[in-house]
């Protein structure tokens, strides 16, 4: 029981981190990044290819994460520019469709070149006893990494000038511009950051189970659900939603069965949207 709870918690933290990346990009530019999961997979594939060639694990992981940071920046500077010129619903729809296309492209390339590639990062050492329960060392490292990164993110948005600038653009783009903030630059940095977060999630997932090249769509859907349940644009909301949904998913999968569990997960998400459309933490 405790082991299941902890599995759920680790999964939840990963969901949460995915949701945060999605939610930041949406909050800033109104772009629903439907290629978010695919970007995570790109990081995993870059790392896996490098490790196949004998690169040291740490280096390969860093290169994988940096490569999606770069991918995020490039997408923002090129494809997303026409999107940012649109307004309101048009912008949302155009951004969504373009990123859908990007998702196809990434999936298409992966399916074509690396259909059977997978990344696993083996964390050596046996299970660790926590509160009398044996827990895989990979799970512990994974949650530690996400915990640290998540904490850093929250501190970053609260206390640094750039973090505050980011939040001001989310609140009111025009107002931020009048205060001398360049929303375009903030969006570019955050798109890159979002890619990096996706990459980190992929790396932590690889610590407990292999990340395969076709995992992108599933990750995107989870990220989307988490971001919406947490309230689009809210970082801590996304984390909370991720943890709750991760627990719901793992517990119902363990006690009821996989298919029913995904229905329960989706129903939980749908009912949160219906009961609290502004997200878990946002005041109406």
């Amino acid at each position: 029981m405790v082991a299941v709870l902890i599995d759920g918690l680790v999964l939840g933290l990963q969901f949460g981190m995915l949701g945060v990346g999605l939610t930041l990009v949406y909050g800033l530019g109104g772009v629903v990044n439907l290629a978010h999961g695919q970007m995570a997979v790109v990081a995993a594939m870059v790392a896996a290819r490098l490790m196949d060639r004998g690169t040291a694990t740490a280096l390969a992981v860093a290169a994988g994460i940096l490569s999606v940071v770069a991918l995020g920046v490039v997408i923002d500077r090129t494809l997303m520019q026409p999107v940012y010129r649109e307004r309101s619903e048009h912008r949302v729809l155009l951004g969504l469709l373009l990123m859908l296309g990007v998702g196809f492209i990434i999936d298409g390339v992966l399916e074509w070149r690396y259909p059977i590639e997978a990344l696993s990062l083996r964390i050596t050492g046996g299970p660790v006893e926590v509160f009398g329960v044996a827990i895989r060392r990979g799970s512990i490292v994974a949650s530690a990494v996400i915990g640290v990164v998540g904490l850093a993110l929250i501190l970053f948005f609260r206390y640094t000038t750039f973090g505050r600038a980011t939040r001001s653009v989310i609140e009111d783009e025009e107002g931020a511009r009048l205060c001398g903030i360049n929303p375009g630059a903030v969006r570019t940095v955050i798109f890159g950051l979002s890619g990096g977060l996706a990459g980190i999630v992929a790396m932590t997932q690889a610590m407990t189970s292999p990340v395969v090249s076709t995992a992108g769509v599933g990750l995107t859907i989870f990220a989307l659900i988490v971001a919406v349940v947490g309230g689009l644009g809210s970082t801590s909301g996304a984390f909370l939603a991720g943890i709750i949904l991760g627990l719901v998913n793992t517990l119902s999968a363990f006690y009821i069965g996989t298919f029913v569990s995904s229905i329960i997960l989706l129903l939980a998400a749908a009912s949160t949207i219906l009961l609290r459309p502004e997200g878990l933490l946002r005041r109406a």
């Binding site: 494809l79 469709l97 373009l98 859908l100 296309g101 990007v102 998702g103 196809f104 492209i105 990434i106 999936d107 298409g108 390339v109 399916e111 074509w112």
Partner: peptide, 10 residues
């Protein structure tokens, strides 16, 4: 196919 589909979509 999926790759070309994506490029055309974009």
């Amino acid at each position: 196919r999926e790759l070309i589909y994506g490029v055309i979509t974009v």
